[in-house]
């Protein structure tokens, strides 16, 4: 009989049990990690070297997004302003505030301010800011009410599904061009649907879902 079950089979049940346990743990761990918003960095809010408040600048003082992010409607990249842009006002306003020491230093010495990057798509994704904001997609669609943020936070997942949801059905996210940088603008749901459909038709907005739209 010893031929039927060789000796090594003695440990087989144990091995199977350990294997199953490992697999189970990995599956739970995988779901725990990958299926949470944290994986897509929603809520990521690092401490920035200068405590810049969008709320104070954009919401309270009503400075247009494009005053600082000047290339957003021209280039794929929405630039972080240079220190000299800050100093346009801060050479007069809060000129001695200790919180702005780094900005003053940077403008003086030419050393850049090391801002921590929050929003990032993978390198093989070629996202273009300009084409979105020029065609009626507001900053709000991806960045939320960033104009009210005291500290910038990763608001939306910016995952492939997130992009595709809108690319499949662009109408809900299309605004009249003059409201693109007005993040507080809202429209009645029914009206928005009709207006969005009209924009899609009039502006020849295509539901671009090919790989080549974003990947090159």
């Amino acid at each position: 009989m010893s031929d039927i079950f060789p000796k090594w089979t003695n440990q087989l049940p144990l091995k199977i049990a350990v294997g199953l346990a490992l697999t189970g743990t990995l599956a739970v761990g995988g779901v725990w990690y990958y299926f949470t918003p944290k994986y897509t960095r929603v809520g990521y809010q690092p401490i920035q070297p200068v405590p810049f408040s969008h709320a104070a600048h954009a919401e309270q003082m009503g400075i247009d997004c494009r005053y600082c992010h000047s290339a957003v409607d021209r280039a794929w990249y929405s630039n972080v302003p240079s220190s000299s842009t800050c100093m346009n006002c801060h050479s007069q306003v809060l000129a001695t505030d200790p919180r702005l020491e780094l900005v003053r230093q940077s403008a003086k010495t030419g050393q850049p301010i090391p801002w921590v990057q929050i929003h990032k798509v993978p390198d093989f994704v070629y996202f273009n800011h300009a084409v979105h904001v020029n065609r009626g997609v507001s900053c709000f669609s991806c960045h939320g009410r960033i104009d009210q943020a005291v500290e910038v936070r990763h608001e939306k997942p910016l995952s492939m599904t997130f992009c595709l949801d809108c690319h499949r059905n662009p109408a809900p996210n299309l605004r009249p061009p003059e409201q693109v940088f007005n993040l507080g603008w809202t429209n009645d749901a029914a009206l928005q649907n009709a207006a969005g459909q009209k924009f899609v038709h009039d502006w020849k907005i295509l539901s671009l879902q090919s790989c080549s739209t974003c990947h090159r």
Binding site: R41, P46, N79, V80, P81, S82, S83, S84, T85, S106, A107, T109, G110, Q111, P112, I113, P114, W115, V116, Q117, K120
Partner: peptide, 12 residues
């Protein structure tokens, strides 16, 4: 994801 830094120009 590693923490990355944006270094804008101090004068554009």
């Amino acid at each position: 994801r590693p923490e990355e830094t944006i270094y804008p120009f101090s004068r554009l």
